[in-house]
Design a protein around this nucleic acid. Structure first.
Lengths: 222, 222
DNA sequence: CTCTTTCTGTAGTGATCGACACATAAATAG
DNA sequence: CTATTTATGTGTCGATCACTACAGAAAGAG
């Protein structure tokens, strides 16, 4: 059964196509494109900007990526694959929801200010204004990417409720929105030049009321 | 001395120019341009979009505003003049810094979701990505506009320290950055469709730790 | 070798970009 | 009235936009 298939090569590495081989590293070029979209945004980045940064001609770009929109979609994927861990690794390895959220915000403070790698300031997804109008498909992609953050935060908080770490009366959705708001706001401050220390101080302030916030709503009024 | 000046008319209302009068309301046209820049951003808004929304021809636009960049600068001013009060009125009339910040965040939750007037979602200044590259002058304008928020927050907090409302050990800069982060983050959530209620819940959560945060830094470590 | 396939560089597609020339229209100044 | 001044509408400028036709180059298949 594993022998009868003779066209084989269903590997993700296409073994080598047939004609003239590509003269550039597709992933490296995609990395440059991602960096450019990250810094300038979709609308403000032209094909000429991209081909120059990627070191290829426009026909090669279109042959390899299809269109500007498709390239942006791939850049989003590349961004996630290469930068997600900077912000989520500590979150997923933390023992408590409190430590997870603290890690998430502190690591965001470091990553968004370009302190852990040679990357632009701010989050490419948070600062993307593609969803404005005209590019509905990309707008949906970016909005979906932003929604993932809330989903993960809420999932971790629900897990903490099941584990008895925080009371069942905790408003998981509101608390998730709160943390999401903090991180999104950090991106704008980072783009404006806020330092890692300033954002870490914001993260600490956000965590200061943690026990108050996870203590339920009965003390909010009065 | 007040009679010798015979060319007079130094009033800000130019009494009426001389040639053919303008056929459109400059402020109304500016309001439409502001709305368009607000929704789509600077780069994604074309002169054709603007002339259509403003109901004028491009020569009239250039005669009245000079250039696309100058129009955007005027749109920023129009935005501030017409929308600042929605978010800052309660802040400046509040008796305590706590109430001021609470009003600021709650009013932001309402304004940023378009609940107090027929206005686009999110803050035009916070969501503007003009400062990215290529338009240095406008980038400086937008960044300066964003800095005003922090200045006002810090001024009010310092005032609260002088009044004895909050302890002198309060880290005014960090607390100001924190509130600024919350409001900036709210704009992104609002643009993604978050409701007024969700943002108000975020504002309440942000205020919950107020007394902890204004209690000084001596309990942060340990 | 030749044939086919795929990529690369040159050059250029129509469309749209921001901005403006020009003639005309509508007002005031004299 | 004429002269001057300013705004408007038509039409269009060169530049740039995203995108591609085309021919040559570089690989495998036969």
């Amino acid at each position: 059964m594993q022998k009868s298939d003779e066209m084989s090569n269903v590997d993700e590495t296409p073994a080598r196509s047939r004609g003239r081989p590509r003269a550039f590293d597709r992933e490296a070029a995609l990395a440059q494109a991602t960096r450019l979209f990250w810094i300038k945004g979709f609308e403000a980045t032209s094909i000429a900007d991209l081909t120059e940064a990627m070191g290829i001609g426009s026909p090669s770009l279109y042959a390899a990526f299809g269109s500007k929109e498709a390239l942006y979609a791939e850049a989003l994927r590349h961004y996630r694959d290469n930068n997600e861990a900077l912000v989520w690794a500590g979150f997923f390895s933390a023992g408590t929801a409190r430590e997870a959220v603290m890690s998430f915000l502190m690591d965001s403070a470091a990553a968004l200010t370009g302190c852990v790698a040679d990357i632009p300031r701010g989050c490419m997804v948070a600062l993307s204004s593609v969803g404005s109008e005209g590019h509905a498909e990309l707008g949906g992609l970016v909005r979906a990417a932003r929604a993932v953050t809330l989903d993960r935060l809420k999932a971790r908080l629900n897990q903490a409720i099941s584990a008895g770490e925080i009371p069942v009366s905790t408003d998981v959705h509101a608390l998730g929105r709160f943390v999401q708001t903090i991180q999104n706001g950090m991106s704008i401050l980072a783009r404006d030049g806020a330092t890692r220390g300033e954002l870490e101080a914001v993260a600490e302030l956000a965590m200061l009321g943690w026990d108050t916030r996870t203590g339920g709503a009965e003390r909010r009024r009065g």
